[in-house]
């Protein structure tokens, strides 16, 4: 290649590489002094979704609690009766898939993550909304928990921040209901009529108490009422009952 052209290529590629490195510095330095405005611009305009990076794992807000969802269901027996099952700790069930397994499957910590997200979401929602979570939603018409909670968004005392918090919680509420419904199919392999779930957070013993195992009392951060089971197609149910 011609001497001049080579230098031009080097300059162009160098500038692109430098711009990329600068962008990486900005998005990874969000909590290290980079301004929110610059971070948001670089993240939204240049990095998301393919080049986005974040390396705060095990650093910010280090995980220090067992988080789980406990659930029960109303299932239909072959005779047509609806029976209520006992409570099941899904976290415990998932742990059985991890125990003595060097390469656990990706499903293994699903509930842990949903419960963690739920813990954060509940903290942000206004207290006026929280009682609604525990109401039973068993109407025959297709009224989901999300629909119910969305009606709360119209309440005048909610400002825009509160509304977005409620919307985020509604999303997770739907996810929890759908996930527990599929777990109900997996556990009892019967048509599921309704589910009820609770998100339970149990801090691990403090470092100084690790020998005695003394733990704080577990906290239920969200407990739903009965939720009518959402409908799933046969392929979805089959994936949960056969795999």
């Amino acid at each position: 290649m011609n001497f001049l052209y080579r230098r031009i290529v080097i300059a162009v590629v160098g500038v692109v590489a430098a711009a990329y490195v600068f962008s990486v510095v900005v998005v990874t330095g969000k909590d290290l002094g980079v301004s929110d405005e610059l971070y948001a611009t670089v993240r939204d305009d240049y990095m998301r979704p393919h080049l986005m990076q974040s390396w705060g794992l095990f650093a910010k807000g280090i995980v220090n609690s067992d988080k789980t969802i406990v659930m029960r269901a109303q299932v239909q027996t072959p005779e047509g009766n609806v029976v209520t099952t006992g409570w099941v700790d899904i976290g415990e069930y998932e742990w059985q898939g991890i125990l003595h397994n060097p390469t656990p499957a990706r499903t293994a910590r699903t509930t842990y993550k949903i419960a963690g997200d739920m813990q954060i979401a509940v903290r942000k929602v206004p207290t006026v909304v929280v009682p609604a979570i525990s109401k039973d939603l068993l109407s025959d018409r297709p009224l989901s928990s999300g629909d119910y909670l969305k009606t709360l968004l119209d309440q005048p005392q909610l400002n825009s921040t509160s509304r977005s918090s409620v919307a985020a919680f509604v999303n997770l509420d739907n996810v929890a209901t759908r996930l527990t419904t599929l777990y109900a199919y997996r556990f009892w392999n019967q048509p599921v009529v309704a589910v009820q779930w609770s998100v339970v957070i149990s801090p691990v013993p403090r470092f100084g108490d690790r020998d005695t195992g003394a733990r704080e009392v577990p906290t239920t951060v969200a407990a739903s009422g009965w939720r009518k089971a959402p409908l799933f197609d046969a392929a979805t149910i089959s994936a949960w009952t056969t795999s």
């Binding site: 067992d66 415990e92 991890i98 003595h100």
Partner: peptide
């Protein structure tokens, strides 16, 4: 210590 003490991060 803390992540290691969490049940779902304890295969052994």
């Amino acid at each position: 210590y803390y992540p290691l003490a969490i049940r779902l991060y304890q295969p052994w």
